[in-house]
């Protein structure tokens, strides 16, 4: 059956509080999920209080501040700090988003930060995305064509053809969408999830690709594709404003249309 409670070793216990200095005038509290695989202990939620003026603009700035001034053992992924690498995806105040482009001004005095939901945790805010990436690889996210490319130039696309894939191709694989999807939580072993399906759609509709049929064949499965119950969390949380739910609906439509 579906698990309605966390496994005993994943239940969260109370953590420690790092107080702001007495002199702090305005305090912001960050309640952060901590898990250390080497301690053998259950995860906990630590509270870090910072002087509001020292937090910086974005959630990522505050995390870096905490790591460099309060607790250097805090683990999180980050790289570009401008919303294009997708590394710092995490659950901030209940929504999956990128820490680097989530402004502290839009959040309250207390900010709750957890790793992406329902993924195995490597440490603190670092989820294990191995399976997520493998699912992406399983849709063969590259050009498949029998026709050789013209010897003297690239495979051409019209402007209209490019515009079709322009948005879907902007996915940064941050995993915000897939890990916000309840259907992915319950069945991620078999359901590909919105990110991988958006990638599949991006290649199905690519005018240069000649494997659209094989790609559709590979998705025609009660679990790989049809676990999508149009919950729409994916589209809600996408930090790049993409629409994986619509891509999945289009795939379902193409599968019906090619039957009659």
């Amino acid at each position: 059956m579906a698990d309605f409670r966390l496994p005993a070793n994943s239940r969260i216990r109370k953590g420690v509080t790092h107080k702001a200095p007495e002199a702090a005038r305005e305090v912001r509290a960050f309640r952060i999920y901590r898990f250390d695989p080497d301690s053998g202990e259950n995860p906990r939620v630590d509270t870090f209080e910072l002087e509001a003026g020292e937090c910086g603009q974005m959630v990522l700035d505050a995390l870096i501040r905490i790591k460099s001034t309060v607790d250097s053992s805090l683990a999180f992924r980050r790289s570009c700090r401008e919303g294009i690498c997708g590394s710092c995806a995490m659950n901030i105040d209940g929504l999956n988003r990128l820490a680097c482009i989530t402004s502290l001004h839009d959040l309250g005095r207390e900010v709750h930060i957890y790793p992406l939901p329902h993924m195995p945790v490597v440490k603190d805010l670092v989820p294990d995305l191995t399976h997520f990436y493998a699912q992406y690889a399983s849709v063969k996210p590259w050009l498949l064509a029998e026709t050789p490319a013209p010897p003297d130039r690239e495979r051409l696309q019209s402007k209209a053809e490019q515009e079709k894939i322009d948005r879907p191709a902007a996915c940064i694989l941050c995993a915000c969408c897939s890990t916000s999807c309840p259907s992915y939580w319950w069945n991620s072993d078999r359901y590909l999830g919105p990110a991988a399906l958006l990638a599949a759609y991006r290649w199905i509709i690519d005018s240069r690709d000649e494997a659209s049929g094989q790609r559709l064949d590979a998705l025609e499965d009660p679990f790989k594709l049809y676990r999508c119950h149009t919950i729409m969390n994916c589209t809600d949380v996408c930090p790049k404003d993409l629409n994986p739910a619509k891509a999945i609906a289009e795939i379902k439509k193409m599968l019906v249309e090619r039957q009659s």
């Binding site: 496994p7 070793n9 994943s10 898990f35 250390d36 695989p37 995860p43 195995p120 945790v121 490597v122 440490k123 294990d128 191995t130 399976h131 990436y133 493998a134 699912q135 690889a137 399983s138 072993d189 078999r190 590909l192 064949d217 590979a218 998705l219 025609e220 499965d221 009660p222 679990f223 790989k224």
Partner: peptide, 28 residues
Amino acid sequence: RPGRGGEARQGPGNLRSPLGRAIGAGCA
């Protein structure tokens, strides 16, 4: 345990590759 990535999903001792796991029994 939560921290053991693949093992948390599959149990220890499962050495199937991530891609093999993602493909699973294929398409119905």
